[in-house]
Design a binder for these strands. Structure first.
Length: 575
DNA sequence: GCCGTTTTCGGCCCGACTGTTTTCAGTCG
């Protein structure tokens, strides 16, 4: 099948993003699944889609050799990636798509509908869209099919209704709120949060819990906090709480380690671990390790024991993504990651001088309570009218107040600013205003929709500006609300490496920007990372661990961060 | 379709729960 003329015109001149390529490969996997093709071929496409989808660097320009060198991508997919890069699709996908009705793929988004069900609904009832499915379920026609009944109809209808308000991934603060609700019914010391939350990801799809508590006791209590119980069992229970899915796995203390390992994931990491076990003649699951030939099984109360048993160093949850950590654990070359106790301060806080709610003294007190030796007060510059930004004169007054507060606080307030990077790349305040400040963050707050090359050059000119020390929230994304602006982070990272400018890891639960993979790339290029909470009030000062988790996911060691430096060392670094 | 410290052919992680069934297929994580 040939591309439609319209799509060809739209496509012309565009370069396929990793997201586009990833989506096309996933679509191929889904279509092949419905067509009942070799499940391992399906898995290969799915895996390639995941690998490219999470990559920070664009793959569109890569050669076949470079693509083939990537774990999980072979020559077959490499050729398809190139085809997508030049045309937006590939021949085999179009061929496969021509064999199924266009709306059928959407059915896969309905809970309880997988490839087999989709195919059955299509071939036996001519259902080819979500709308068709809804009509048939309402008319109670689906129960007539062999293998389907009333409950399936009800499930489809519930799921379709929910799909009309699509569930987005939670940010970490929202996840913390749900965990707080769960805490009200769980017995202290008997449970742990696992899953992507434990791995420190910027967003969380569902909450995973491992518990040694009694299933009957817990299940009866969970009813009280659930919107809906999805599955209830004595090994596993799933329910919905405040709109989000929660999975609970029950285990015994003697098997807690392997269950926690299993439920922490990631899926790709679990597969690697199980393949490793197979290579040693064993089988790894959430209950332990089994040597099938000899019938020997082993239980693990702690995760560490599983790693040791497989000949690996312990891999912290943040690294478990199959991004090379298993190999590093095997060769004893895992990095020693930065820890919370090594953080000496927060490098991005707003005061009531601009749009924050804390005065300088409150910030200093909060810093003392958090055990910090410094906090950077970085209000907005005057070019950002909406945030009551500071001009040069106001900055002088603020300097005086900070000086007064610094006389009697153990948490030193660094006098800084978050100056706008204007549309032309210049800072929103004159050099005379910036020169005397301790620390200057440059951030984009306007003209978000500039074309990629313009935006990239704009940010690079800020990176190169002698008074700007840190680039704030470098990609500008707002989780679930606004996409990152079009910026080539590779070029920005290269420029930052050349000038010694730090890139911020903005720890606000709404931003989480830079994210893990960009942090890793920056660190590999020798760029320093600065964690800032961007706090506008006292509660938000507690965002710092969110950012720390991202840095750990980016393989950050203490020397990769500004926040592990002493106050004096920070001043020396930025001067 | 990918991959190889037994292999370039023949494998490919593993288990829970539901619904609709008389033993299991399908979905999900």
């Amino acid at each position: 099948m040939v591309l439609s003329g319209i799509r060809e015109v739209i496509w012309k001149g565009m370069e396929a993003s990793n997201r586009t390529i990833s989506e096309r490969l996933l679509l191929m996997a889904q279509v092949l699944e419905i067509l009942d093709e070799n499940p391992f071929k399906v898995r290969a496409y799915r895996r390639a889609s995941e690998i490219i989808g999470r990559l920070a660097t664009p793959v569109a320009g890569l050669s076949i050799t470079d693509l083939d060198a990537m774990e999980g991508i072979g020559e077959g997919v490499a050729l398809k990636v190139q085809e997508i890069a030049s045309s937006g699709t590939f021949r085999e996908l179009e061929e496969a798509l021509s064999r199924i009705p266009p709306g059928l793929i959407d059915l896969l988004n309905i809970e309880g509908v997988g490839p087999k069900t989709a195919k059955t609904l299509w071939q036996k009832m001519n259902i080819t869209s979500v709308a068709d499915l809804e009509r048939a379920a309402r008319a109670r026609r689906i129960r007539a099919l062999k293998g389907f009944g009333e409950k399936k109809e009800a499930l489809f209808l519930r799921s379709i209704a929910r799909q009309k308000t699509p569930a987005t991934r939670m940010n970490r603060e929202q996840a913390d709120e749900i965990i707080a609700v769960i805490r009200t019914v769980m017995k202290e010391g008997t449970w742990t949060v696992a899953g992507s939350y434990r791995r420190g990801k910027s967003t969380v799809g569902d909450i995973d819990i491992v518990t040694t508590d009694d299933p009957r006791r817990v299940n009866s209590l969970l009813h009280g906090i659930s919107d809906e119980m999805i599955d209830v069992g004595d090994k596993k229970t799933s329910f919905r709480c405040r709109g989000s899915r929660v999975d609970v796995r029950f285990t015994s203390p003697s098997m807690f380690g392997s269950m926690l390992l299993h439920l922490t994931g990631s899926a790709a990491f679990n597969i690697r671990m199980r393949e490793l076990a197979i290579s040693k003649g064993a089988s790894l699951n959430e209950y332990g390790i089994v040597y099938t030939s000899q019938g020997i099984s082993k239980e693990f109360s702690r995760e560490e024991e599983v790693f040791f048993y497989l000949g690996l160093d312990f891999i912290v949850p943040e690294l478990r993504e199959d991004w090379g950590e298993v190999e590093a654990a095997h060769s004893h070359t895992l990095p020693t990651l930065v820890e919370q106790g090594q953080i000496r301060g927060d490098l991005h806080v707003h005061s009531s001088w601009s749009d924050g709610s804390m005065d300088i003294r409150s910030i200093a007190r909060a810093g003392e309570e958090l055990g910090y030796s410094y906090l950077a007060c970085t209000d907005h510059s005057s070019s950002l009218g909406v945030a009551r930004g500071l001009d040069e004169a106001a900055l002088k007054c603020q300097a005086h107040e900070i000086e007064m507060v610094n006389r009697d606080t153990s948490c030193h307030i660094l006098h800084g600013i978050e100056v706008d990077i204007l549309a032309d790349g210049s800072p929103g305040l004159p050099a005379s205003a910036l020169r005397d400040l301790d620390i200057v963050i440059g951030s984009i707050h306007s003209a978000f929709s500039q074309e990629s090359d313009v935006m990239t050059r704009r940010i690079i000119s800020a990176v190169s500006h002698e008074d700007i020390d840190i680039i704030g929230h470098p990609t500008g994304r707002l989780l679930g609300q606004r996409e990152a602006y079009a910026v080539d982070m590779q070029r920005v990272i290269a420029a930052a490496a050349a000038t010694g400018t730090a890139l911020e890891c903005n720890a606000s639960s709404f931003r989480m920007d830079l994210d893990d993979l960009h942090i890793r790339e920056a660190i590999q290029s020798g760029v320093k990372i600065s964690i800032g909470t961007d706090a506008h009030g006292p509660r938000e000062l507690h965002y710092l661990p969110y950012g720390l988790g991202l840095c750990r996911r980016g393989w950050a060691t203490p020397s990769d961060l500004l926040n592990t430096l002493t106050c004096q060392e920070v001043l020396e670094y930025v001067s």
